[in-house]
């Protein structure tokens, strides 16, 4: 009796976790990320949060945050999470493009995928690698959200119960936000020869797709629905929302991810290994 789909999904995604958290190169990336995040957390995020807390009265009606698109921060009861939300919406999609770039491409070029596919299947490898990358990102997002919670509790430990819902909201939303980016990288990784190529293509496709669809929608407003095809389309609208309102747009990344995964699976099934 050979193992089932879910068993292989688990084994393949576990191996990806091991690659990130138990190999030298993976750990180096994690340490680099931790250092960069630590700097963001301790300086811009903490100082901005302190400013928002101290000057809460003065900030009422202050339009500068609205001008830079951070207006909704004032609606978050705990400013640290409002700031984290805005920083994370910029950082994690970009991180996803690099972190999820090498789902299958270098293994395919090296021939390693042949050793795996002969005892699994292309579908299992494709979805297993995607699941692995998503779990890694979910762990990183959770870690950064928890570190933000620690910052909140350091300021005022009494905020724990009110901070917990915010923690869940941002974590859930950020995982949803990176989903279509990771799916796009899965599809690109099944096509190109290296992680670098996948990243370059992702940036080019994303930029041109957004520009072309934006152009079409400007002249033919009936085509505005095509914007739904651009990964991250909902992010600017998300930034204007706060709390559980942010889940109103959850269908956008979910639909995008399903479409991109279907495309990636189709490419993977036809790709020469």
């Amino acid at each position: 009796m050979h193992p089932g789909f879910l068993n292989h999904l688990l084994l393949i995604s576990q191996f990806e976790l091991k690659r990130t958290f138990a190999t030298r190169s993976g750990l180096l990336s994690i340490v680099t990320f931790a250092v960069v995040w630590g700097v963001i957390l301790l300086y811009p995020l903490r100082f901005s949060a302190d400013l928002l807390v101290q000057e809460k009265g003065l900030m009422q009606g202050f339009s500068f945050l609205d001008v830079i698109g951070f207006g909704s921060i004032q609606q978050w009861p705990i400013p640290e999470f409002g700031l984290f939300w805005h920083f994370a919406l910029l950082i994690f999609p970009l991180l996803s493009i690099t972190l999820a770039a090498d789902q299958t491409c270098s293994d395919r070029e090296r021939g390693t995928l042949r050793f795996i596919v002969v005892r699994s299947s292309r579908d299992r490898v494709f979805f297993g690698r995607f699941a692995g990358v998503m779990v890694i990102q979910a762990l990183l997002i959770s870690a950064t959200a928890l570190s933000t919670l620690a910052l909140v509790l350091y300021r005022d430990a009494a905020l724990f119960s009110s901070a917990l819902p915010d923690l869940l909201v941002v974590t859930t939303n950020l995982i949803l936000a990176v989903l279509p980016f990771s799916a796009m990288m899965a599809a690109l990784s099944a096509t190109v020869k290296s992680a670098r190529q996948a990243t370059v293509w992702a940036i080019l496709i994303w930029t041109f797709l957004a520009a072309i669809i934006g152009g079409f929608a400007y002249y033919l407003p009936t085509l505005a629905f095509l914007k739904l095809l651009v990964p991250g389309y909902q992010l600017s609208a998300l930034a204007a929302l706060s709390g559980w309102q942010t889940l109103q747009l959850a269908y956008v990344p979910l639909v995008q991810s399903l479409l991109l995964l279907a495309l990636g699976r189709w490419i993977m099934a036809r790709q020469t290994l």
Partner: peptide, 13 residues
């Protein structure tokens, strides 16, 4: 099972 002509193992493990 197969031995492909050109295939290398993952260098990280």
């Amino acid at each position: 099972s197969a031995l492909p002509q050109v295939a290398r193992l993952d260098p990280g493990f």
